[in-house]
Design a protein around this nucleic acid. Structure first.
Lengths: 337, 337
DNA sequence: TTGATTTAAGCAAACGTTTGCAATCATCGC
DNA sequence: GCGATGATTGCAAACGTTTGCTTAAATCAA
């Protein structure tokens, strides 16, 4: 005879009543914390299972003075009005979700359109989360610095700099830029351009590293073309640029998406890649190899980066004053160069 | 003289003490609910601002019997062991985040690897969120149905079917498949194949709609090629398929990412698109136009879909018994067909 | 001036947990 | 048989809010 009780068990108190014990006993049985007779513990656990009862995490967290959630913020300061769907973010987000889940934390996702210089503090003060991971500095470095001064559990995916007061995890973008430069030069390319938005620290570093690694005679001729990194924007910029008659032989893009736009625009203008010109991207998103031709690119270790972000955050949550981490990029040579 | 007090204000009680009022007054001042003298309300609000105090949402939610968060789950039942970074998800996620933020809710993101048939109920019973949005049925329709029977605030992005006990929002995939079929036939294509995983209801419907819309003599010759939808998997399948000597003249892919793999593999085998064969994708991700050649595809209204998902969820949260919603697809003709 | 009416603000009990401390009880050494 | 010890369990106060009810104060009409 299955003696299932239809009665709704909504709280530890209900279960205590049914089980003929006190709420504290139920709590200890279900959390496994505190001393409790093995028999009763098992009896209560079985009872909870039978009634499909689970502890209410909200109440639990309130009592424990934590929220059990980490916020992942995507600041869209530099892409105002544009929606962002770069595969890079999805990959990063996926790995972050997994790493946080492993530690028993929830991932609270928020896209923020930075307003004024108070959006971050305001968010933090609501106490919604125990810590914050921010993907990209966007153009908000000053805000991040200000908050970092009084709020420890915050780490940023982005460009590391001695000028930063905030803690970062990120690819060594200068080194990445240098890899691209050396590769193009080795291919004999001399009419070069960089496509990206240097108001974003990460992209600025890629550009600087690129230029700095060029031989002196090329350094002054490399063109900087401003573009947002959405497919729409970058395709438009690239198309207009080729239409204006520009005929480069080596292009370095701030991201793979931008590189794919360049590829598309170049083809449209009758140029052959890599026959007439080489194109190099940045990120190595999974789709980079699907480009036609497959994209040469500077790879970021997204999975490793996500793990490091989470590690660092939890070390800081534990009170440790852990510092920024830089990850080496890697050149992936395919057929677009 | 700025009379800032350095004193830490951690709760409504602290503020009440400082302001010389009761906690209830502070609560009413800060929430704007309940009758309160305009003067005191403003005075307390100013005081709160000055001390940088924000209500603790966790406690607020506990008291209000809600969590203020909606879970977005990505079940990876059919992509076990593969990480998923399809731009489609990112686009969907972004729009969902915005729609939920507009309503004052947080988005709790979780990728789940379905274990057994209890993962969903277990998640829900923890009371972490007020409602659940699930992106894609994956191969978990049975689980969804079981939960839907006793849990109302749940909506699924996916394939609608009279066999479903769960509520869906999604593109009319059969109609989408039909659009692809009609287009290929109009182009005079006759040696056809579909690439996808028909264990996933959405893809199955695309395939069925595709086949059903073909003229009778073609219906039996269309090949069904099984592939997962990650770039890695689909590129491998496509490459092997062409290598085996298959020479189709019309391909319909379950997603744009798969279509781009087909494009890449076809080019590798010396085939010209659309000269030798036409390729059609599904989704119209922002990068579809960056493919080389730009991809003809069946567009899903991702933004509209996200809005409908959220709308529907909140209607159900309010107790309304609102039903499934189907969204019409749209054929976007570019240069791959 | 008085009593009735309106308005403003406080009291205290919830929401569902956790946990320090106290209480109970069986067991044990002598 | 008795006090001491250790193992279990219960009591009740927190965590930071919201809100029904009550009280106090102010306003008003007559």
């Amino acid at each position: 005879m299955d003696d299932t009780k239809p009665e709704q068990v909504k709280s530890i108190a209900d279960l205590a009543r049914i089980g003929g014990v006190s709420v504290s006993t139920v709590s200890r049985a279900l959390t496994g914390k505190g001393a409790l007779n093995k028999g009763t513990r098992e009896r209560i656990q079985a009872l909870a299972d039978r009634h499909g009862f689970k502890l209410n995490v909200a109440a639990q967290n309130l009592r424990l003075g934590r929220t059990g959630a980490i916020a992942v913020l995507l600041p869209l300061g530099h892409e105002r009005g544009q929606h962002l769907s770069d595969p890079f973010f999805m990959a990063m987000l996926g790995f972050l979700a997994d790493a946080l889940t492993d530690r028993g934390y929830d991932l609270l996702l928020s896209r923020v359109l930075p307003q004024g210089d108070d959006w971050l503090d305001t968010f933090i003060r609501t106490g919604r989360t125990d810590g914050v991971i921010i993907i990209g500095q966007s153009n908000q470095s000053a805000v991040l610095d200000r908050t970092a001064a009084h709020y420890a559990p915050m780490v940023i995916w982005g460009e590391q700099s001695s000028r930063n007061a905030h803690v970062t995890v990120g690819t060594d973008n200068q080194a990445g830029g240098a890899l691209a430069a050396q590769h193009l030069v080795a291919r004999g390319r001399r009419r070069l351009a960089f496509f990206g938005n240097v108001a974003v620290p990460e992209f600025a570093a890629r550009y600087q590293g690129f230029v700095a690694a060029l031989p002196a005679d090329l350094r002054d001729t490399v063109e900087l073309v401003h573009t947002h990194i959405t497919p729409e924007a970058s395709l438009e910029v690239a198309t207009a640029w080729f239409a204006a008659g520009n005929r480069p032989d080596g292009l370095f893009a701030a991201s793979d998406v931008v590189a794919m736009s360049l590829l598309s625009a170049a083809t449209d203008h009758g140029l052959s890649v890599p026959g007439d010109l080489s194109i190099i991207g940045f990120d190595d998103i999974p789709m980079a190899r699907l480009a036609n031709p497959p994209l040469t690119t500077v790879a970021q270790d997204i999975e490793g980066g996500a793990r490091q972000l989470v590690d660092l955050l939890f070390r800081r949550l534990a009170g440790e004053d852990a510092g920024s981490i830089s990850i080496a990029p890697r050149l992936v040579i395919r057929e677009s160069s």
